[in-house]
Design a protein around this nucleic acid. Sequence first.
DNA 1: TCCGCTATTTTGATTAGTCAAAATAAATGT
DNA 2: ACATTTATTTTGACTAATCAAAATAGCGGA
Lengths: 220, 220
Amino acid sequence: MASSTVENYLKHILLLSEGTSDLVSMGALATSLKVVPGTVTTMIKSLAVEGLVDHRPRHGVLLTDRGRRAALGVIRRHRLVETFLVSVLKMDWATVHSEAEQLEHAISDDVLDRLDALLGRPATDPHGDPIPSAQGKLHSQVYATLATCVLKKPVRVVRVTDQSAAFLQFAEHHGLLPGATVRVIDRNLTAGLVVVKTAGRGSPAFSVAAAGQILIEPLR
Amino acid sequence: MASSTVENYLKHILLLSEGTSDLVSMGALATSLKVVPGTVTTMIKSLAVEGLVDHRPRHGVLLTDRGRRAALGVIRRHRLVETFLVSVLKMDWATVHSEAEQLEHAISDDVLDRLDALLGRPATDPHGDPIPSAQGKLHSQVYATLATCVLKKPVRVVRVTDQSAAFLQFAEHHGLLPGATVRVIDRNLTAGLVVVKTAGRGSPAFSVAAAGQILIEPLR
DNA sequence: TCCGCTATTTTGATTAGTCAAAATAAATGT
DNA sequence: ACATTTATTTTGACTAATCAAAATAGCGGA
């Protein structure tokens, strides 16, 4: 019964706390939800009363078990919807994120499960982001990135974590889709530049920050 | 940019004004939206300021052209979603109405058009309700019903206008789906009863009111 | 330790949507 | 034509979500 506003707060808290074990700050949450910090404080206090988050005043927030379960549900809906839009409706992977943003709040468990079955119960969405199970299990592995992997050796792209349409279009244009095999041919930390060799289409160069958004695994 | 609340008001006004040429009363709208009449008056006044409806105080309301276009868009989304849920996800036609009620407010034009193409640009939804075109054209014909058609002669079911899950389940159980061929074998206006012969499964009896919900066309 | 910067919280106000209950207008019947 | 019933509108109040701006707390540096 959580409103879509509440669902969004929970989702963003979970996504921001991914990786790090620290609390999520009000400021970070405000930026990512595009509201002012005061609004976040007010809302978080009420989520704490609902038992969805644990609020440590002046320090940050973290999800309770209930809050985490709810957040994983939203993320599951989001990622399955994205997968549907790309696999069935043949939409561009760069645009499905914002579409899914709306649909994730409107889809029932029944519809979701049928969608999941139709798609063959996929483990990841088109960007390589893992899809939480219906039971709320999420196996997110820690991967190397194009900013950290060994030079010259071929690696496989497994996930692109930047969701912005511009970045995804750029990545797609250079064949940097999950599953693609690529090699980092040069990396200059001083200049902050990474040059990659992809199948065909030239040798795109990235900033180190951008390269860090492309997760890879060594080729067997 | 209309909120889902506004979309619902417009949709209900259009559905209530279907057939009749009179204004839609505040009371009827309040009942069908499940809010109190005072709320409807307040809301209608603000929709009138927005130019979506024409409010005749103390008499009723009707859609402006803009309001009608918006309402048809909502109905198009609703009916295409229902069709998708039944045709692709194999959901029960009795349950899709309430699912579509949520999704109709969350689906973009792009997604909708792809869904429409996937379904082969259907003219009606699973209940036989006509789907407005993307340009806002709706060809709703006037049909006879099981309460008014000739006795004994075979007729084809084209549309079931009652959306309640209970009624739809009953209709389905007796094979009264759009496309089915049936005959009215007895109609007693005094008792208010209609008895129908369907393919196979017995001879269900309806109230005249219920029979009026099943639209038919004579068999060529 | 104290000063100042920065993040957070508070306060007061606003908008959308709703209800309960009182006031008012229209329609109906005799 | 007038009183009564019924529908509509108004009024006042409430909740969820937000913002702007003021108040406050925590932290790092001298």
